[in-house]
Simulated scan of single mutants.
Amino acid sequence: MAGVSRYLAQSIVGTLRQDPTLNPLATLRAWPNLPAEALKRLNQADLSLVDRALEQGGWIWEPTDYPDNLREMESPPLCLFGRGDASALSTPMVAIVGTRKASSYGLAVAEFFGKGLAEQGFIVLSGGALGIDAQAHKGALAAGGRTVAVMGTGPDVAYPAVHKGMFAQMEASGGARVSPFPFGTPSFPSNFPARNPLIAGLAQAVVLVEAPAQSGALQTVAAALDLGRDVFVVPGPITSPAFRGSHGLIRDGATLVEHPMQVVEALGGGMIQPLPPEEGDDLSETQQAILACLNGGPMLTEAIVRQTGLSAPLVLAELTMMELDGIVKKGRDGYQRGL
């Protein structure tokens, strides 16, 4: 709750637990010395939202329900609100985080890592936001895996609204949406930094894909380092300000990774180098069109754009994904088929 210290929040929760007959909203509104912003939110609160959320598959965890890794946090949430399969939180999870304003390269890499980690049995954890978060979730779903979003709103609020379908697919696929904020909580700017440590607390490791110097994703990484979690960073172009935060972490000793299997190996799995797919196998129509351009040898990106009639950003994103998968490789003369 805005402006309420953790000590005060614990006192309020303790009082309500000792006497279940108390009306929660009336008790909170009458509590002495509550900050004005907290009172404002309480006056907007509607407990019927909680009842409806629970009837529609929502759940509430108290600290006694938390998995061990969450209890390692210095200040774990007083309660955890969720939708979907709660058991997902007790399965090994790797967080993939980064900027909302991601490059086509960053988006492709996030999806590649999400897909690769899901294929190895990890639950992919992220924040449900635009950019890197969404692509990581989508990569896991594309692999038939499970993914969990830690929301900066109530877990029943589809924010951003454009992700409503993705959130529904996450829950239908055995994943979940969780939040330290109660059902019905709308988007407040202060909520998102507050939820970042929860991502680190739930994760076994954190993969940073793309982050400028002031990215909120760096807060998640800092919380992960404080908890002793493994932190992996994907490098980017040295000329791009969008990767200044990422490269700073690499300089400070974070582990550089270029493939999801490197994360799996570091976490105790065996290194298994997947073979590139056979021509036409699991390739989209766009990828097949790009690959057909390379039958005659290497080709520059501009030439591929002209020959396929596709947009330059789409071609760049697909080439990045295909290069990561080993389908194509880049040389001085442009892109060519992988070996």
Rank of each mutant, 00 (worst) to 15 (best):
A2Q: 15
A2P: 14
V4P: 02
Y7T: 14
L8E: 14
Q10W: 09
S11R: 15
I12K: 13
P20T: 01
N23M: 00
L25D: 05
R29C: 00
N33E: 14
A36V: 11
L39R: 15
K40G: 14
K40I: 09
Q44M: 13
Q56N: 14
Q56H: 12
G58R: 02
W59C: 06
P63Q: 07
T64K: 12
T64V: 13
D65G: 09
Y66G: 13
L70Q: 03
E72K: 14
E74V: 14
C79M: 13
C79D: 05
G82T: 12
R83Q: 13
G84E: 08
T91P: 10
P92A: 05
M93D: 09
V94G: 08
Y105L: 07
G106Q: 06
G106S: 03
V109K: 05
F112I: 04
G114R: 03
A118H: 03
G128L: 09
L130C: 11
K138I: 15
K138A: 12
A140I: 05
A149F: 02
G152Y: 01
G154Y: 06
H163L: 10
G165W: 06
M170H: 01
E171C: 11
S173F: 01
A176H: 03
V178R: 04
G184F: 02
T185D: 08
P186E: 10
S187H: 13
P193T: 14
P193G: 11
R195M: 05
L198W: 04
I199K: 05
L202E: 07
V207A: 05
Q214L: 11
T220A: 09
L225R: 15
V233E: 02
P241T: 01
A242Q: 10
F243G: 05
F243L: 02
R244T: 12
G245S: 11
H247V: 05
I250A: 09
R251K: 15
D252K: 10
A254Y: 01
E279Y: 15
D281K: 14
T286M: 05
Q287W: 01
N295E: 15
G296Y: 03
P298Q: 06
M299D: 02
L310R: 04
S311N: 07
P313W: 00
L319D: 03
M322C: 05
M322T: 00
M322H: 01
E323Q: 03
K329M: 00
R332Y: 13
Q336N: 04
L339V: 00
